[in-house]
Simulated scan of single mutants.
Amino acid sequence: MKQVILKSGILLKFMFLVFSTSFYSQIKHPKASPFSEVHQQLGLSKISVQYSRPATKGRTIFGGLVPYGRIWRVGANESTKIIVDADMEVLGNPLPKGIYALYAFPEEDSWQIAFHTNTSHWGDGRKDYDPKEDLFRINVIPKQISYHQENLLIAFDSITHNSVNMELIWASTKVMFPFTVDTHAQMEQEIAKQILENPTAQTYYEAARYLQEQGKSYKQALEYLRTAIEKGGDTYYFHRVKSLVEAALGQYENAINSAQKSLALAQEQEKDEFVRMNQNNIKRWKKLL
């Protein structure tokens, strides 16, 4: 009899365990607002955004699904996160390296965008959201676009070494705001570090090419190029950048000589594009002698 009771108890416990597991289990299913992650390089730095992308589904979005005057998580599901791997600025506001929740407060004619330090809230945080935990807020003006954006889109555009615009686009509305970073200061540190450690001809060339492209420190760039040629020998690209730096310094005769060397080396290697660029520069600089 004890054996029967014992077996019955074990069976009941097993059935309860199965029932409990089935009751609390969830079916894996596709999300109505799928998760997305976007990364954007900004000079030597990077901005990443993690968000979910709700669809309009024929609904009025701003002033409807997203009411005016209320906090919005800039997406769906969890709060939207923005990660910056270096110190930046947003409209003059310092944005230290780190992770932030991104919130918006839409109005018909103006929005506030909040960079929030508390990333633990689900969604917009509801009553737990504390404005005192905002790192800062910025004001942006919404614009109407000429096309329909079905799913919320966060994108980056107008990219330079030092700045990029973040764009929030949904339905017929777009807002954007710039991120800036002092890439030149980072590059100065990187160049100094690489030249101090174990520089090669390519190290000096890349340092010079960066300075030439940015229109900075031409005399230093010329010294780097001379060292690159001394260490690495003649190449069409060493002499091409050297010609551009010399022209920027007003040394047109030297620039023509460097361009002629680059042209000859490019012809030997059948680098037609560089042949044409050097020919055009030589023609232009001869007029300036």
Rank of each mutant, 00 (worst) to 15 (best):
G98L: 14
Y51G: 01
P94Q: 06
V181S: 07
N280H: 10
F19N: 10
Q50T: 08
H161E: 14
V140D: 02
F115Y: 13
A32W: 12
M187V: 14
Q251A: 11
E107A: 14
L153N: 13
L95V: 11
T160M: 06
S172Y: 06
R53Q: 08
L211D: 02
L265W: 00
A255P: 00
G215C: 12
T80S: 09
I195P: 01
T203P: 02
R126P: 13
V164W: 02
L289I: 15
L263C: 00
P54G: 06
R284G: 10
P54D: 02
A155H: 13
Q186I: 04
E89T: 12
R137H: 08
P142Q: 08
K31R: 12
N281P: 00
Q41E: 10
I27D: 07
I138T: 08
Q269I: 02
I154Q: 01
G64M: 03
Q251P: 02
E230R: 15
R59C: 02
Q202R: 10
D130C: 08
V275L: 00
R59W: 02
D182N: 15
W72V: 11
N254R: 06
F136E: 05
L42D: 00
L91T: 06
G9T: 04
S120T: 11
T235L: 05
F14G: 05
D128I: 09
E253T: 09
I10F: 05
V275Q: 00
N118Y: 10
L263T: 01
Y224Q: 03
S120F: 15
I47L: 06
E197G: 07
L95K: 00
K31G: 05
K127E: 07
N198R: 08
A228C: 07
T227D: 04
L91H: 04
I83R: 14
R137M: 15
K2W: 15
R53I: 03
L102G: 05
I159W: 13
D85W: 14
K261V: 01
S52I: 04
K7I: 15
L6H: 13
R73W: 00
V74A: 04
F177L: 05
V140F: 05
G58N: 08
S36G: 05
Y252G: 03
T200G: 15
S217W: 11
V4M: 12
S22A: 10
F35L: 08
Y236I: 01
A266P: 00
E107G: 14
M277H: 07
T21Q: 09
H161C: 13
D128N: 10
H239T: 03
F14Y: 05
N162L: 06
K31D: 09
A185M: 07
E150S: 14
L288Q: 13
G58R: 07
Q279F: 01
A155F: 14
Q220D: 13
F179R: 01
A221T: 03
Q189F: 10
S158G: 07
P54F: 04
Q112C: 09
L222H: 04
I138W: 02
R53D: 03
Q194F: 04
G58T: 11
V66K: 01
R59S: 05
L211S: 04
H161Q: 09
T56F: 05
D128W: 07
H39E: 12
T183G: 04
Q26K: 06
Q267Y: 00
A32P: 04
